[in-house]
């Protein structure tokens, strides 16, 4: 009996392979500026320093601060979605929970805002851990369903428990106090949120370029191969889920004190979808893509406010157009273009 002794996939790869030339490991200055760690962070800081020159009124500050707050959430969510390849449809729930812990503790129990914030972060972290531990052993769809459920439950609880949260009407939040001085007003909050965003971006870039970041991308690329290399994949998925949830909670606390008001819409399913869309629009696995996604999707509704009823439709169309034209998202597509252009100019 003639056994087939060739592996089944043989013929597919039988054609002759040619090896490409060495791609060059030395980075020139232009490439350095295009790297996230080199150029990206400096550019972000530059934009943050210059931007106030263009902010004329409270409304402007309001929009920009909200962009910064959303960006913090999205930078964290990008670690989960873009790098680890996991999905969460409930991050607005964590954001909302952070906001409400700050609101309730400061307004109802007189807890200091700077204490309430870490308490919210810690609480959300523990909740996220408890959810992630059983769910993340399963595949992506289960995670999507579970996080969706968690987000909805948080939203419902916040809306229903009016005695504590003010219900659908929301509740007033006292301003943050630092060393006895109340912090309020756009310009001050601008620098607070700017600092927090720079910190979030820096931490994110650090993780990405570390054994943890490679483990996350590794398990995304091939879970079995990552495991065989010693990566406890469940542990890492849980870790990044908790990290991103905590970042969302911190952003929520900041949002609560900045607006001096919280309402359940911040914790809604739609808001969760918006966060995910910001990640995808800006570009998966790109930290500055996450920031740009937050900028675009926070700004667009403001710009489109004139169209009233059609706002959502136009927003949807713009997003579809971007995703069809630039399926990898804004930042990865654009940097690839610029890199190609630099290479051509250099040679």
């Amino acid at each position: 009996m003639a056994h087939n002794v060739r592996p089944s996939g043989y013929s597919k790869f039988a054609k002759k392979q040619t090896y490409t030339r060495r791609m060059g490991t030395k980075k020139n200055r232009a490439q350095m500026l295009l790297s996230e760690r080199g150029g990206g962070l400096s550019l972000l800081i530059l934009v943050i320093l210059v931007l106030p020159l263009f902010l004329a009124n409270n409304y402007h500050y309001d929009v920009v601060v909200n962009i910064g707050i959303n960006a913090i959430v999205v930078v964290g969510l990008n670690l989960l979605i873009g790098h680890a390849g996991q999905i969460s449809l409930g991050h607005a729930g964590f954001f909302g929970l952070g906001a409400y812990v700050s609101a309730v503790l400061t307004a109802r129990y007189g807890v200091h805002g700077l204490v309430a914030l870490p308490v919210g972060a810690l609480g959300v972290g523990i909740l996220a851990y408890a959810i992630a531990r059983p769910v993340l052993r399963l595949s992506g769809h289960y995670l999507a369903m579970a996080t969706l459920g968690v987000g909805l439950i948080i939203h419902i609880v916040i809306s229903r428990e009016a005695w504590l949260t003010g219900g659908p009407d929301g509740m007033y939040v006292p301003p943050l106090e630092v060393m006895g001085v109340a912090v309020y007003g756009g310009p001050v909050w601008y620098w607070i949120v700017a600092g927090a965003l720079i910190l979030a971006v820096w931490l994110s870039l650090n993780v990405i370029d570390s054994p943890v970041g490679r483990a996350l991308r590794g398990l995304n690329g091939s879970e079995v191969a990552a495991q065989a290399a010693g990566v406890d994949t469940t542990r890492y998925k849980v870790m990044v889920f908790v990290l991103s949830a905590v970042m969302a909670a911190v952003a929520g606390s900041l949002a609560a004190h900045f607006s001096e008001f919280v309402s359940p819409t911040k914790a809604s399913f739609l808001q969760s979808i918006l966060f995910v869309t910001m990640v995808v629009l800006g570009g998966m696995a790109s930290t500055f893509g996450a920031v740009l996604g937050a900028v675009m999707l926070t700004l667009l509704p403001q710009v489109l406010a004139d169209f009233a009823d059609y706002e959502q439709v136009i927003l949807g169309l713009i997003m579809m157009a971007v995703m069809i034209a630039l399926p990898k998202g804004l930042v990865p597509t654009l940097t690839a273009l610029v890199k190609r252009w630099v290479r051509r100019a250099g040679s």
């Binding site: 054994p211 490679r214 483990a215 991308r217 590794g218 995304n220 690329g221 091939s222 079995v224 191969a225 990552a226 065989a228 290399a229 990566v231 696995a285």
Partner: peptide, 15 residues
């Protein structure tokens, strides 16, 4: 079982 979006070196670094 290759991590296709990573660089070759990063694949080895995961190892």
């Amino acid at each position: 079982q290759i991590m296709r979006t990573m660089t070759a070196l990063d694949n080895v670094m995961v190892g």
